[in-house]
Design a protein around this nucleic acid. Structure first.
Lengths: 129, 129, 129, 129
DNA sequence: GTGGTCTAGACCACC
DNA sequence: GTGGTCTAGACCACG
């Protein structure tokens, strides 16, 4: 697979996995109908316990992103792309809002906040389009 | 005291407490030399376990924001204001950076990100300056 | 053949196959003495693993619904019709009982259950007689 | 707690647990704001692995029925009752529909089905209201 | 081979 | 004490 996990950055491994799968679906690196690696295979590849991968898959299944075919494997559902894109944006919007609101609660001036935001936006690579 | 805690928003309660105290100091709602409520008093007020408040105070003490007067209580140190202001900005900068980087990892286009950020900035009350 | 399978509705595929064959026999769409499609043929037709069809056939054979003619194929036994009809009713009775009992365990009032049942009965096409 | 699990009736243990909690909430045997037994406690009581209970709780949390207070325990959410009642009815409706549709696919006459249903309804204890 | 369930036990942060 | 994460390994049904 095309992604990595970082066992010690606070975010649970199973969530790192499910997020990256969602992102892969959102950017169509993973397409509807396509089979994803088996639990055991991905577990081996990421050097992670199969249960951990299974949990990520199960969560995605509960969200309707993945579908299980018994004895066969799991694949990306039709609706997944739309859903993942919406999720990605909504998740981001929430996090931005959260940070901004905390800034306000902290009595930071709007102008100071704008400066900070622009500084950080400027740091981002142009290539991330 | 003048702030609230939300027991179920992911951020540990003790950290919510210490942050809000820092913010209060940064905005001079709490001034150097001023006594802060006792552990028990604040715990009662926030309907929170006293251990939790104690931990927040302990953390702030370790950071040099608070100072204990034996048998009397705790008060805000002289250097606290400067420190809290710097902390506030640095904390915020980190969180903004974190969110933006996650957006990039999620393959979101820079322009989409800018739009999101501006939408959310626009939602903020002007009065927070 | 005249039926379809749904790979993701919880019921094992081999069971979907055997049930539908039983139903076909019960309604005399499939008559005693008649040959049924070979494992390979039906597997191809249903886009299903041959092992799965084989298992369905094996189960039906064990129940005495099908009979193997060496080197020739499988056919419906004489006694099959009577048996399938009885099975069909008994199977249904069990499932109804199961659902009703679960409703009771869930503390649903008998009257609410009756209403539900009648609503669903009303939805059924008259033509299914 | 007031319910039992049957380790070998096909339904996963974690689901038996979550269902019975939902039912308890729906019938207000468990009320919003009320704390439920800890993972370890219920596990001990049911003679089941704590992970299994934890999974049931986690599923309910994902559905918004339960809420976790870190270091404290889990409690029933405000909206839970409404949701559990709706769930209970909807779950039942689906299962009834499924059974009926299968009956039709099996070419059973509507009248035969009605007879079956009434026989089974009659078997239920009046007290289940 | 596949996914799914369950057990057992370790470790963590939080209250 | 609480819930949460993770590992390791067993067993099952299904294809």
């Amino acid at each position: 697979m095309f992604f990595r996990i970082d066992a010690s950055d606070g975010i649970p491994i199973y969530e790192q996995i499910s997020r990256q799968i969602k992102f892969a679906v959102a950017s169509e690196a993973l397409r509807p109908g396509e089979m994803i690696p088996s639990v055991r295979e991905l577990a081996r590849e990421l050097a992670v316990n199969p249960n951990t991968v299974a949990r990520a898959y199960r969560d995605l299944q509960a969200e309707g992103i993945l579908e299980a075919l018994r004895g066969t494997g799991m694949l990306v559902t039709r609706q997944a792309v739309k859903q993942c894109r919406a999720d990605r944006i909504e998740l981001l919007r929430q996090r931005i809002r959260q940070v901004f609101e905390e800034a306000c609660r902290g009595q930071l001036a709007l102008d100071e906040l704008r400066v900070l935001v622009n500084e950080e936006l400027a740091r981002l690579p142009e290539s991330s389009s």
